[in-house]
Nucleic acid binder design. Structure first.
Lengths: 132, 132
DNA sequence: ACAGCTTTTTAGAATCATTATAAACTAGTC
DNA sequence: GACTAGTTTATAATGATTCTAAAAAGCTGT
């Protein structure tokens, strides 16, 4: 199993549940956006198998901390995650309430001129809201 | 009262509560960031007067819809609002969990090269996460 | 000023995503 | 296999936000 090493390398025990979640998240060419609920449903459907919601939360947060997932900064009642962990940005279609990836190359270079003493820039994320 | 007209002009009845909230939000040179809870506390302290939490929610949402406030796109368990409604961006200090304004002039021009059919860009917001 | 109508406020209940709990289970090690 | 620490689980708790429906307040015409 290709995910066993990945998990071990970051200090996460490769449990059955984590491996299954890896499958659902990473066994595809396409990256995607999801909420915890989306993921729980996808697991049930795709693996015909229920993983406790608490475990889904725990795992997603663990993966995020290890850098396998990114949270998308957006105001919504649910938290959105992204399996695309490259530096990139998002469109948010206000009407459809859907996120669309916006690659770094589709945004001109961003130059932050203001500096904050004692702080380093960790990430720069752009959210482009769309209307009709 | 200077806010009466402002409210009437946007079709909101100038009620006592709305006028008081205007005072707390807009009677200052400095703009600021707040959550609903921050605001409810500020009202209690500053006006020595309690406004029902439901009213605070209603009013903030009404003001946001009318463009007197902006929601700040960030992942937090609470929703953040901004009395600064000019086009601008934010630093988010991950350690202190604090927002800092980043004026448009402190960010180089942003050029979104990708277009989505049938959609217009409504806003472009940058979130710069800071670490130590 | 008042009647009539609509909008707003309010306290409290309801909702719903997320987090905490603590008991049962499992992976890794000897 | 037995020990230990890390995980999973169902369920309860939390907490921000929204809903409800009754009371209050704004507005308009008289």
């Amino acid at each position: 199993m290709k995910y066993i090493e990945k998990l071990r390398n970051s200090g996460l025990r490769p449990t059955k549940q984590r491996l299954q979640i890896c499958e659902v998240l990473f066994d595809t060419d396409k990256t995607f956006h999801f909420t915890i609920n989306d993921l729980a449903n996808k697991i049930k459907r795709q693996l015909n198998n229920k993983i406790s919601l608490a475990t889904v939360y725990n795992t997603v947060h663990a993966f995020e901390k290890k850098g396998y997932l990114k949270q998308i900064p957006i105001n919504s009642n649910q938290t959105y995650f992204d399996t695309n962990i490259t530096d990139h940005h998002h469109f948010y279609d206000l009407k459809e309430e859907k996120l669309i990836d916006l690659e770094n190359s589709d945004v001109g270079p961003i130059n932050i001129l203001k500096k904050i003493d004692g702080k380093k820039i960790k990430s720069v994320e752009v959210l482009v809201k769309l209307e009709d």
